[in-house]
Design a protein around this nucleic acid. Structure first.
Lengths: 329, 329
DNA sequence: CACTAAATCTAGAACGTTCTAGGAGAGACT
DNA sequence: AGTCTCTCCTAGAACGTTCTAGATTTAGTG
């Protein structure tokens, strides 16, 4: 069966059916003041009967109030999914809709940003790992743009206090008695630089020896890098605690550790980052740094809707699980 | 700094700057015929200088050709992410944009569908696990709706041949010599019913004993259910091959197997479904049934754009990895 | 009852595009 | 010259809303 496109009812249809003007029907539909109770109920009933739903294109074209905000994220990132879920909840409370754009292999970030803007959103909340800041600053002259998880000069940014997160992780393992620490970094990923710097500082502060191994945000790179490290070092010189850039990388690291015949956490312990589903998953039971998703979402939505220009930083919280313990005597 | 919204350039601005009418500028911008080469380049240059981008709301309002299609999916599902990526590629080739709507804890599927429709998409491709068919059928009177991975009467559906996938998995382990098979099913998840039925048939056909254990599409349920099974059975009566509903569930199953002190694949072997990133992840090395993402995406896009009403079924492919082997003698 | 204030309603322009219908010029052919 | 057929261009309506400004009704007051 070919699809015969049935025309959807318009505001004019509703007005005609309820015997009022289009303007009044509009007033009723958007809940503005200036209509009597009687016409209100008449119009609403007609709308319900016809199955009328306002056309958000026309609405936003005319009023520049689409009550829609755009969210750019990477699919397949558990943390992004969590944030999106929390943002949906926030949007609900404010009577807003959310439209998503996915960055990924086949869609560069600028394009995603433009698609969202062209679709008529009132603001964009973006998880843009790589988009040049200049582009965001430029776009922010047209509408509010909030950068989530990444600090961008000139753009309100809602981020986690990376230094605090790394510090919690480092001091946790240091207090357990570990003195040789390894950080598998995130390469050029978002926040990788801050975590790298924070790691060096925190290790020094804890009187531990901290080494950074260049890696990346994925499990494959972490696996390869750590395997080489384990092959190239003797047990005596080896680090006894590994801080991965994120949970995914931690799983890759875990694979390398298992392959080398070492036991977690007795011989080497492992800390992830993000406390995503990976951390709780099979085998892993990862100690991980949890970002405050709810607070991040709330702050981002608030910045997008009410307080343009309000950056904020949110404290993470270390979640201790089974992948960290005292070093074996 | 509050954000001073700078007005974005309109087609009228472009027309004025290049000394032609709005209508002609429109012709040039959308690449229609009826403009001389000279004015074409003049308009294009003016547009570039002003940084003009067409307003897709106005465009789609007027022409009902927004060149945008809506995609509804669940965030955090690796398979959905893969499909989205492939669909983006398809959309690119057809000069279409994609906007996403996420179903999830805080956003029911009907709402997502409506948001996409109201945003003016020309068609919707939907991964709707639970939406009542009637709603989709109703919406499909307004615009083409394609159901992906789920058969829905009255709606063109692009799906995987579940029976074939399960058959490949079952006959693989049967040929390895396993005769007691267990299926951790997907509960009420999409395609769960088909896989359940196919499992029973395939097991019978292979002269194997097939038992179905009610579970769900997540790793936690699979873990719990399998742990109880392993505790309640003796090694002699136990199944030696487990087919999980998907890779995520397989990881949960894996956790239960490890906890019971059993070895994969020597003592018990494990097959996943979807061949998602989970299957390749740390520890897992899962044999899994790969859905043909590229073909599914292409068929869905084709159905959405060109051939309303064209359902299709696509063959999956078993990917053999390290989690399956001959039973120990 | 006249006059004003408030409440309720409506006509019509506007948002930024596309599309229809037609006009102006330039050759080409009787 | 006239007529035809092209190609190139443009005016203005239309899409479905919101919004401004004013019209009409109702209620309130002396």
């Amino acid at each position: 069966m070919p699809t015969p496109p049935a025309k959807r009812p318009t505001l004019a249809d509703v007005a005609r059916a309820s015997g009022v003007s289009v303007a009044l029907a509009s007033i009723v539909m958007r809940g503005a003041e200036g209509a009597s109770e009687e016409s209100r109920s008449r119009v609403k009933q007609a709308a319900a009967e016809l199955g009328y739903r306002p056309d958000s294109r026309a609405r936003s074209l005319r009023s520049s109030r689409s009550r829609t905000i755009g969210l750019a994220l990477a699919l397949g990132e558990p943390l992004h999914a969590e944030l999106a879920d929390a943002l949906y909840e926030q949007a609900d409370q404010n009577g807003f809709e959310i439209i998503l754009g996915a960055t990924g292999r086949h869609r560069d970030e600028r394009r995603v940003l433009n698609t969202l803007i062209d679709a008529g959103v009132e603001a964009v909340i973006g998880l843009f790992p790589e988009l040049p800041p200049a582009q965001l600053v430029h776009a922010s002259k047209q509408l509010p743009i909030i950068s989530l998880l990444r600090t961008i000069d000139g753009i309100p940014s809602v981020i986690t206090n990376e230094a605090a997160g790394v510090e919690q992780a480092v001091s946790h393992v240091a207090q357990l008695g570990h003195t040789r620490l390894l950080h598998l970094d995130g390469g050029s990923a978002i926040a990788a630089q801050q975590r790298r710097d924070a790691f060096a500082e925190s290790a020094a502060r804890a009187n531990a020896h901290g080494q950074v191994l260049p890696a990346g945000p994925d499990d494959a790179t972490a696996f390869t890098v750590l395997r080489e490290y384990l092959e190239a070092t003797t047990p005596a010189e080896r680090a006894t605690a590994v801080l991965a850039f994120n949970d995914r990388a931690a799983l890759g690291a875990r694979q390398a550790i298992d392959l080398a015949g070492l036991h977690v956490p007795e011989q080497i312990c492992l800390v992830g980052y993000d406390d995503s589903e990976f951390a709780r998953l099979a085998h892993a039971d990862l100690t991980s740094v949890r970002q405050d998703v709810a607070a991040l979402a709330q702050a981002a939505m608030h910045a997008a809707l009410n307080a343009p220009g309000a950056s904020s930083t949110h404290a993470p919280q270390l979640v201790v699980r089974g992948s960290t313990a005292r070093p074996r005597a």
